[in-house]
Amino acid sequence: MTTTKWSIDPTHSEIGFKVKHMMFTNVSGKFEKFEATAETEDGFFTNTNFEFTAETNSITTGNVDRDKHLLSADFFDVENYPEIRFKSTSYSKISESNYTLKGDLTLRGITKPVRLDAEFHGTANDPWGNKKAGFGLTGKINRKDWGLNWNSALEAGGVLVGEEIKLNIELQFIKA
């Protein structure tokens, strides 16, 4: 069987997340520098291996002070852990365009399994003749599983930062 390699089109992809702030609103953020590859055995994304890395110092939430705090040892500790990595372990079809993507996520030197819901958006040729493929990924992780433990108690009860991180990822690949 022929292996087809795909690389990320970063101008048409986004690695985003949301986390509760003060227990009642969400703060959104994203990573601006990342790489991803996919390898298919059949060209149809039914049997696919995915790999992903993001530069932790590329995080942005739209607030300079918050971003500086996220880069510190309280959270991502970018001096010691410059990358987040994901390597798939399985990609299983659920329905026509819905899949389950499982893999190992490494963050702050800790590797744990994660499960993401994947929607395959299909393939098409762009106006320049390049074959493209699109995916939407969603999932949830608990930040404390990777040692991101910092928090602050609120006077009215609760905490400043939620533990659950909602992932919202849009990927567009280009056939190599």
Rank of each mutant, 00 (worst) to 15 (best):
K140T: 15
H21T: 11
L167F: 01
T100S: 14
M1A: 15
F75N: 00
R85I: 14
T46H: 11
F75R: 01
E96T: 09
G162K: 03
F173T: 08
I59S: 00
S152F: 05
K87E: 06
E155R: 10
R66D: 03
F24N: 06
L154W: 08
E32Y: 02
D67E: 03
K131F: 07
F52R: 02
E155K: 09
T40L: 05
F44T: 05
L137M: 08
D126Y: 02
T106R: 15
I8M: 09
Y81N: 09
A118M: 13
W150F: 07
T111Y: 01
F75A: 00
W128H: 09
T123A: 10
N47S: 15
A176W: 12
A156R: 13
E164T: 15
E155C: 13
G147H: 07
H12D: 10
A118I: 14
S7K: 12
D42N: 06
R143P: 02
D117Q: 14
F86R: 05
E163C: 02
P82A: 12
W6M: 07
I15Q: 15
R108A: 08
N47P: 03
H21S: 10
T89E: 01
V159L: 04
K18A: 14
L167N: 03
T11F: 06
A38Q: 09
F50M: 01
K144Q: 04
F24Y: 06
Y81I: 11
L70M: 13
W146R: 00
K144D: 00
A156F: 04
H69N: 05
G43M: 02
E164F: 07
G136H: 10
D42M: 02
I94A: 12
D77P: 03
G129H: 06
S92W: 05
F34D: 10
T60R: 04
T4S: 15
S58A: 01
I141F: 08
E35S: 12
D117A: 15
T60V: 03
T123R: 04
E79P: 00
K131N: 04
K132Q: 14
K144P: 00
T56N: 02
I8A: 07
